[in-house]
Design a protein around this nucleic acid. Structure first.
Length: 438
RNA sequence: GUGGUUGUAGCUCAGUUGGUUAGAGCGUCGGAUUGUGGUUCCGAAGGUCGCCGGUUCAAGCCCGGUCAUCCACCCCA
């Protein structure tokens, strides 16, 4: 049979996993430094937990897990339907399972509860470039506090992670209350959803397209004109008079001012207010974030926001949360394109021993044990003799150093260490080699 | 879910109005070179032309179906 893997999934080879871990390790290190704790939740959730949380479109994209055994037989007899053939599904994101987790563990958790979670999620979407059916999300959230300090903290986390990875970014911030204020000012509060969906497409389709989109969604011409005018605002100061009649809008502006005050001028990357930032997910109620990589054509590589009542649906009302997500797959693509991975991110092997015969092979095996004990990532080619073959293997493994062990080396105890990048060779004792590697 | 694109060697792709034994580059393997890789030279292996059916004396090429792929939309990371 011909081997294959499901649509929208991928295998990751050693080099890719090393590089992916480089990204995850940096992200985790920053999360932990800011006091966030890791949790993990099951791959499968009850469908009752998942359905209805992501809108109609999201429900369609849920992977459902077919019932098994007697339950399946029973369901098949009894008018089989999408609804009664499955009661479990694969997690669609990390936020809803997190909300469920918080509600179920509310008595054990200390609030504000700060958690991070790095796990794969599944969506039955049609795959495209940078879009898969199985992909990782790196979420960091804090629940149980209304403090805008956390909006500033999460911005600092973005700033620090991308600085560590060497990606220059623009962090855009807006506030859903500001958007609500715009709808209010335009007199179309009831069409808030349609308006934000249209505005969200601004980078992609331009102001012309946004206007057309709003027309098609049945927003009145006068309202569109008002909205268009407000969207010209570049700063919070410019926006204030435009939203003077909307209490909600002014509150949103106030929240943004507070966040910017917390931040001051301490960030390395550009953090800017962007009134045109909308974001689709409709559970956001306060500040919203989006991160754009500079110097590369790519969708957002991170996003998030505040949600006032995510746990309410699971029976715990009044718990506010704010969180952001890192798009690991896209970060990978950006780093690949800008060649930002350090050379040693792709391979962890530091040293390869090559030998000529059974005797030197035996000797090298003991050398191997010693350098490993010193913490060096090392390996010995299993077959002595053919030097050319061994050197080719060294290239394939992208090992930076090769130790040549022949009769002369064995008797003198001075191994020949070859730098594979420069081709230079020197005679060194095992101790000196270890010294050099560390 | 809607509309389109492309399926030929491990990879990237040629392949004439349908006509004998389907090609190239890169990669792989072997040799030149039995104490040295990335360069060079020589040689070799590697293909049910995505799959099923149809038209034809004859199909990689035309037609239908199907699967896969990529792209746009929807939505999204």
């Amino acid at each position: 049979m011909k081997p294959g893997i499901p649509k929208g999934t991928r295998d990751f080879g050693p080099e890719q996993v090393f590089k992916r871990n480089y990204i995850f390790d940096n992200i985790k290190a920053v999360f932990v430094k800011y006091g966030y704790q890791p949790i993990e939740t099951p791959t499968m959730e009850l469908l009752s937990t998942l359905t209805g949380k992501y809108g109609e479109e999201g429900d369609r994209l849920l992977f459902r897990v077919l019932k098994r055994g007697d339950k399946l037989a029973k369901a098949l007899q009894n008018q089989p339907s999408e609804h009664n053939l499955a009661e479990e599904g694969l997690r669609y994101d990390l936020t809803v399972p997190f909300a469920r987790f918080v509600v179920m563990n509310q008595n054990e958790l200390a609030f504000p509860f700060k958690r991070y979670q790095i796990q794969p999620v599944w969506r039955a979407d049609r795959p495209q470039r940078g879009r898969y059916r199985e992909f990782y999300q790196c979420d960091v959230d804090v629940v149980g506090s209304n403090s805008l300090m956390y909006e500033a903290e999460l911005t600092q986390i973005y700033d620090e992670v991308f600085t560590r990875l060497g990606i220059e970014v623009t962090i855009k911030i807006n506030n859903r209350k500001v958007l609500a204020g715009i709808a209010e000012a335009a007199g179309i509060s009831e069409r808030f959803g349609d308006m934000t969906i249209a505005i969200d497409k601004l980078d992609k389709i331009g102001m012309e397209g946004v206007r057309r989109e709003m027309q098609e969604r049945g927003i009145a011409e006068a309202a569109i004109a008002t909205i268009e005018q407000i969207l010209q605002a570049q700063t919070l100061e410019e926006l204030k008079p435009l939203l003077a009649n909307s209490a909600t809008g002014l509150r949103g502006i106030g929240e943004l001012e507070t966040v910017f005050t917390f931040l001051g001028t301490t960030t390395k990357n550009t953090v800017q207010f962007d009134v045109t930032l909308a974001r689709g997910l409709n559970y956001y109620t306060g500040c919203i974030f989006e991160v754009q990589a500079r110097g590369v054509q790519m969708g957002s590589i991170g996003g998030g926001g505040r949600y006032d009542d995510l746990t309410g649906i699971f029976g715990l009302p009044g718990v506010s949360g704010v969180g952001v997500s890192f798009g690991a797959e896209r970060i990978y693509d950006v780093m690949e394109e800008l060649q930002l991975f350090p050379a040693d991110a792709a391979s962890s092997l530091q040293l390869l021993f090559v030998t000529f015969d059974a005797l030197t092979h035996q000797y090298a095996f003991d050398c191997l044990r010693q350098v490993r004990a010193a913490g060096i990532h090392a390996e010995l080619y299993p077959e002595p003799g053919n030097l050319k073959k061994q050197m080719k293997y060294a290239n394939a493994r992208r090992v930076p150093y090769v130790a040549v062990v022949g009769e002369t080396e064995m008797s003198s105890g001075q191994l020949t260490l070859k730098n594979m990048a420069t081709g230079e060779q020197e005679s060194l004792s095992l101790e000196a080699i270890v010294e050099k590697m560390l």
